[in-house]
């Protein structure tokens, strides 16, 4: 005689009982009215749950999602375009400066000895800049530079957050 737990009944409903347990269960149910009732109740629950109908969203749901999607991707495209154009402008300016410097030096100096002198001048200039930077990095100066940098970071952070807040406000207006 098997002990008829709820788990066995559930497994029976799910068709997960092996043939041996299945025949044992059927035998048992023939002799037990209370367990047959339990099974009938469970089957009723199973059938009723199978009849569940999905709830429906409002009629214009899809339109709302798609319009939100379009607006969001428009803002995203605008942001991307803005960042891309700013980067391009900076890159062009940087390239122009570099090209200008090289053109200036090489167009004025035609022979090789003079070119070497120009390069040496550049190297001397870079060495001077690095040595003056080294001079700045004393214990006293470094704390001043640190303070200035921290202050700049705070200001930049504030400006960034303000910009974000502004963008968010604009986005919510659009949406």
């Amino acid at each position: 005689m098997i002990e008829l737990s709820d788990e066995i009944l559930n497994n029976y409903i799910d068709g997960e009982l092996d043939p041996y347990k299945l025949s044992e269960l059927r035998e048992h149910l023939k002799n037990s009215e209370s367990d047959s009732l339990r099974l009938a109740m469970l089957q009723k629950v199973h059938r009723e749950l199978g009849k569940l109908e999905p709830l429906e969203v409002s009629n214009n749901f899809t339109c709302i999602v798609m319009s939100k999607l379009q607006k969001k991707s428009k803002v995203f495209r605008m942001d991307r375009f803005f960042i891309f154009s700013i980067s391009i402008v900076f890159l062009i300016i940087l390239l122009a400066i570099i090209c200008f410097l090289f053109l200036m030096s090489f167009s004025q100096q035609s022979d090789t000895a003079q070119n070497v002198r120009v390069i040496n001048n550049y190297l001397i200039f870079i060495t001077n800049v690095s040595s003056s930077l080294k001079g700045l990095m004393t214990q006293k100066n470094i704390s001043i530079i640190g303070s200035i940098l921290s202050f700049s970071i705070i200001i930049a952070g504030y400006l960034f957050l303000e910009n974000q807040r502004h963008a968010k406000r604009n986005l919510s207006k659009i949406l």
């Binding site: 709820d6 788990e7 559930n10 109740m41 199973h46």
Partner: peptide
């Protein structure tokens, strides 16, 4: 969780005397 949900619903049916309706 699936079994427990079914069992809980079944227990409520028994408790509320729905046996006659079902059988």
């Amino acid at each position: 969780m699936l079994h427990r949900s079914r069992n809980a619903l079944k227990d409520q049916l028994i408790k509320n005397n729905y046996a006659e309706e079902i059988l």
